[in-house]
């Protein structure tokens, strides 16, 4: 069901106006049948999925039947180990009729699942030129992020911590730098394990969060999805409200004019 009115604090990506800043994934569920209820509870409008060779021995209903029609599909290029492979997957995804958004995920490190920023930037450049809305998944590296800006990415998606680790914002300082320096939406993807961590990412100024494992592997995925939806909204609202004075920085002088650093100005104009 599409919203008729513009959302209050919209996130505009690839020409589309999004009202929810929580993106969800469809992997690792005990059953794909959970996905519709999870999607509903989370309020998410963007959902990721992967592409694989059709399995002839297992022709059961495909994932698309479980994804609400209103949602924007964000296929990822998981499985790609090089830019060329990622480009191929993106083109296949578009041919499969899901629109032209793509999450670039180029990983050739099976143990840590860390993304290859260089290959990702190459793929971004090619796909952006072909009209894709490119959301690249990378480490929170400022130079990689800058090259993604030049390459035409629609956003930058730094990992909070390695995929599936649920360790939250291990890269918090680096993500903060990206948020301050990169003129694109910064979407924290991977490693968010608890709603509080998603909330924190949004408080810091992230544009959105992508959460998969934490919801799919929760004891009650639907309830967890609802919690994440609220956490992302709360964090965003806090960010916009503008945190007030947090701490005193340095000591306050006992009385004006007696300052150690500027006391010499006493009596000056």
């Amino acid at each position: 069901m599409t919203e008729n009115k513009t959302p209050a604090d919209p996130l505009v990506l690839g020409g589309q106006t999004l009202g929810s800043r929580l993106f969800i994934g469809t992997g690792k569920y005990s059953s794909d049948a959970l996905i519709p209820a999870v999607a509903e509870a989370s309020g998410a409008e963007v959902v990721t999925l992967a592409l694989r060779r059709l399995d002839r021995s297992n022709p059961r209903g495909d994932i698309l039947t479980h994804i609400p029609a209103r949602m924007r599909l964000l296929p990822n290029t998981s499985g790609a180990r090089t830019a060329a492979e990622a480009v191929r997957v993106a083109r296949l995804a578009r041919a499969a009729g899901c629109g032209d958004w793509v999450k670039i995920e180029v990983i050739s490190d099976a143990r840590n699942l860390l993304p290859d920023g260089y290959e990702t930037a190459k793929a971004t450049e090619i796909l952006a030129r072909e009209g894709f809305t490119v959301l690249p998944y990378v480490n929170a590296d400022l130079y990689v992020a800058r090259s993604l800006v030049s390459a035409g990415a629609a956003a930058v998606m730094p990992l909070g911590s390695p995929i599936g680790s649920n360790r939250g914002l291990a890269a918090k300082e680096m993500i903060a730098i990206l948020i301050a320096e990169i003129p694109l939406p910064v979407i924290v993807d991977a490693g968010i394990g608890r709603p509080s961590q998603a909330c924190e990412a949004m408080e810091m100024g992230a544009a959105a969060c992508l959460v998969n494992t934490a919801i799919a592997t929760a004891v009650d995925p639907v309830a967890m999805a609802r919690a994440f939806g609220r956490a992302v909204a709360a964090g965003r609202e806090a960010c916009l409200a503008g945190p007030g004075r947090v701490l005193e920085r340095g000591a306050a002088p006992s009385s004006p004019g007696e300052g150690a650093l500027t006391g010499f100005l006493q009596g000056e104009s």
């Binding site: 794909d32 990721t48 992967a50 592409l51 059709l54 998981s78």
Partner: peptide, 10 residues
């Protein structure tokens, strides 16, 4: 031929 379809993913 390669026949590719969508599956669940993050």
């Amino acid at each position: 031929l390669e026949i590719i379809r969508f599956v669940g993913g993050g």
